Computed example of a mutant assay.
Amino acid sequence: MIDDRAKAPAATERTPAPSAADDHYRVMVVDDSSVVRGIITKSLEADPAIRVVASCPNGAVAVRMLPSTPVDVIVLDIEMPEMDGMTALPRLLEISPGVKIIMVSSLTRRNAEISLRALSLGAADYLPKPATGLGSADQFRLELVTKVKAYAARAPRGRQVRPTTVPSAAQPARTQAPARPVVLRKAAIDRPSVIAIGSSTGGPQALAEVLKSIGPGVTQPIVITQHMPPTFTAILAEHMTRYAGRNAAEAVDGELLQPGRIYVAPGGFHMVMEPGASGTVVRLSDAPPENSCRPAVDPMLRSLSAIYRQKLLVVILTGMGYDGLKGAKVAVEAGAALIAQDQASSVVWGMPGAVAQAGICNAVLPLSEIGKAIGRIARGEAL
Rank of each mutant, 00 (worst) to 15 (best):
66 L>W: 03
266 P>M: 11
36 V>G: 00
272 V>F: 04
250 E>F: 11
211 L>T: 05
375 G>N: 12
271 M>G: 07
382 A>P: 14
35 V>G: 02
143 E>Y: 00
326 K>Y: 02
254 G>H: 13
172 P>D: 12
78 I>Q: 12
52 V>Y: 04
223 V>A: 08
235 I>L: 11
142 L>T: 09
107 L>P: 07
287 A>E: 13
380 G>L: 10
104 V>D: 02
268 G>R: 07
108 T>Y: 08
53 V>D: 01
103 M>G: 00
59 G>Y: 04
321 G>T: 05
30 V>A: 05
262 I>C: 09
302 R>G: 05
108 T>E: 08
313 L>I: 06
265 A>N: 10
138 D>T: 13
246 R>V: 07
382 A>K: 14
353 G>E: 04
138 D>W: 04
264 V>Y: 07
256 L>K: 15
368 S>A: 15
249 A>W: 06
219 T>S: 12
60 A>H: 07
315 V>H: 07
36 V>F: 02
217 G>Y: 10
246 R>I: 05
10 A>L: 14
68 S>N: 12
111 N>L: 01
266 P>K: 12
58 N>T: 01
60 A>C: 00
160 Q>H: 13
123 A>G: 11
380 G>E: 13
201 T>N: 04
100 K>Q: 14
291 N>Y: 09
179 A>L: 13
127 L>C: 10
63 V>N: 05
104 V>R: 03
367 L>G: 04
41 T>G: 13
87 T>D: 12
5 R>I: 14
3 D>G: 00
261 R>H: 15
284 L>A: 10
75 V>W: 03
158 G>R: 01
227 H>V: 05
99 V>I: 10
86 M>L: 15
360 I>A: 04
221 P>D: 06
285 S>W: 03
313 L>P: 09
144 L>D: 02
59 G>D: 01
5 R>F: 15
65 M>L: 11
16 P>F: 02
275 P>N: 09
18 P>H: 09
121 L>R: 13
312 L>T: 07
299 P>V: 06
189 I>W: 07
110 R>I: 05
150 A>V: 03
67 P>K: 07
213 S>I: 00
101 I>D: 05
161 V>K: 08
347 V>H: 01
373 A>S: 15
319 G>M: 02
20 A>R: 14
25 Y>S: 11
130 P>N: 07
156 P>M: 04
75 V>M: 04
327 G>S: 08
380 G>N: 11
9 P>R: 03
304 L>S: 09
39 I>E: 04
121 L>C: 11
261 R>A: 12
339 I>L: 15
382 A>G: 05
15 T>K: 14
136 S>A: 12
318 T>F: 08
117 R>V: 02
332 V>L: 05
151 Y>L: 13
109 R>N: 10
302 R>M: 13
